[in-house]
Write a protein that binds this DNA or RNA. Structure first.
Lengths: 275, 275
DNA sequence: CGAGCGCTGTATCGTATGTTACGAATTTTG
DNA sequence: CAAAATTCGTAACATACGATACAGCGCTCG
């Protein structure tokens, strides 16, 4: 039973004493920000005393004030992370269930890019554009194809790109080639794979720059990463969606291509000749 | 000058030490809710210690943690109250070229699904849901990772799934196993690969059902295909985008999982046991 | 290779915060 | 109109939270 706090309030508003009702009105007036502040501030804004605020949240069914705040925060998090609900509409829900997941995917992509600044992309592109630095790519069970996709393009526009295939032991053998100038791009969404974390740590110890593509809950590898892309993966489906990360990958490919335009054009020309 | 906290972060992100950068990334990953929690929770989510969080907010220019939280709350209040938030993204900085390709990708996905009927999806799912029919997947130079992605999921929810790797000659050896009940999923966008066309024709001659994922200009393989998904691939970039096809693949995976729910649930359960 | 610097985590401290007890004030009921 | 019940605020309390001092470590530069 996950009923929102706002609904709780309007339900019990009429059974409240005057003071607590003022608290309720103050909270609804600019919901939910006041509830995130301290009891003292809340009470002052509502024009009542601190204990009244506490009795108010107690009447809503919360054991204590922090629990009440946690509920507000969870609610807020859910609201901010699914832009669909931002409009208030519970989704047009057109017909089949297919469009629902597609709409969710579109939201995920938009939301992912809201949290990725241009500067972040520019920095990553700068890292990737150094032709002397070797690039290694690796991914998890379901995300490795995205790593492959990216590698397939990077290989064309610049030298020294290697996708790490197969078993963890194969990756490790490649550690020997990795140095401080090099970059490792890792794709890891939940359930996060221990093998990737182990590998990332070893690479990190060798001074390798790590770029991590993960989900919004952040793979533990974020600890070692120089850059972290937190893609939204939640869709109404048994599986997580990697579409947002896929689009981020495509974006990086595009930007990098633009940046290396002169070099890569020459390179691509030579490749054509070799056929 | 009321600059937003998020902008402050992206401005100074690169002048930060590793630990504080992790804090920044964790905050941006699900902005701004973690910042409203306690220092301890924030630090745990970011994988750093409490003092690092405090140093982080100090570097952003705040005197203390409560002041930082107040800034987040003010920002949140402004965002929630302004009608702009309902219209969509309040995000001010939208000028770079990255968003342009992203918007194009979003349009591509939408447009792709406008041309795919539910019946088409249902028919394909029906084809794919026969556990006796073997499933083969193969893709072109850049699209093969998408085939792999799909295969990685299909392998889990049903038996008899095989991704054809490596050279054309390898694929051909598999023709011997393909019969009239079987399904071949091919990903082929321009520039269309002759090898795929040759292979598709041979498979077609053996009576294999072909499902083709291609672009809006249709690979020549469409001639042999039972089902054709025409994804939009054009983006303002030197490369074509496979994102739309990727989302179609995810949609099929999701629908198929739902359809096979009973069987696949049991199957997944058994797989878990085998670990 | 060594010395210096900067970064980070552990442990401790002071304090602001939530909490509770109690009495005053207001409302309700006979 | 009086007495009781309920509500509300003042004040004291304990806890948990943010802040700080300090030491260990890795990194850079000479």
């Amino acid at each position: 039973m996950k009923t929102g706090v706002a609904e709780l309030i309007s339900d019990r508003m009429d059974t409240m004493p005057a003071g607590e009702r003022r608290a309720a009105q103050a909270l609804i007036a600019n919901y939910p920000v006041i509830g995130l502040k301290t009891v003292a501030e809340f009470s002052q804004a509502a024009g009542v005393s601190s204990p009244t605020i506490l009795r108010f949240v107690a009447r809503l069914g919360f054991q204590n004030y922090p629990e009440f705040q946690a509920a507000l925060q969870d609610e807020l998090a859910a609201q901010l992370q699914s832009p669909a609900s931002r409009a208030g509409l519970p989704q047009p829900s057109r017909h089949g269930s297919a469009p629902a997941t597609v709409e969710a995917t579109l939201d995920n992509i938009r939301e992912t890019f809201r949290h990725v600044s241009e500067k972040q992309i520019a920095d990553m592109v700068a890292l990737l554009s150094n032709p002397k630095a070797a690039l290694f790519l690796v991914g998890g069970r379901f995300t490795d194809p995205v790593a492959r996709y990216m590698a397939a393009h990077l290989t064309i526009i610049r030298p020294n790109v290697l996708h790490l295939t197969g078993q963890e032991s194969n990756w490790r053998d490649r550690l020997i080639d990795m140095g401080k100038r090099d970059v490792l791009l890792i794709f890891d969404i939940r359930r996060y794979q221990d093998s990737l974390a182990r590998f990332a740590e070893k690479a990190h110890q060798r001074g390798v720059h790590i770029i991590l593509f993960t989900d919004q809950w952040l793979s533990p590898i974020a600890r070692f990463a120089r850059h972290v892309i937190a893609g939204r993966t939640a869709v109404p489906s048994p599986w997580d969606s990697s579409a947002a990360l896929f689009v981020v990958a495509e974006t990086l490919i595009g930007e990098l291509t633009r940046r290396l335009e002169a070099d890569s054009a020459r390179r691509i020309g030579e490749m054509e000749d070799l056929r």
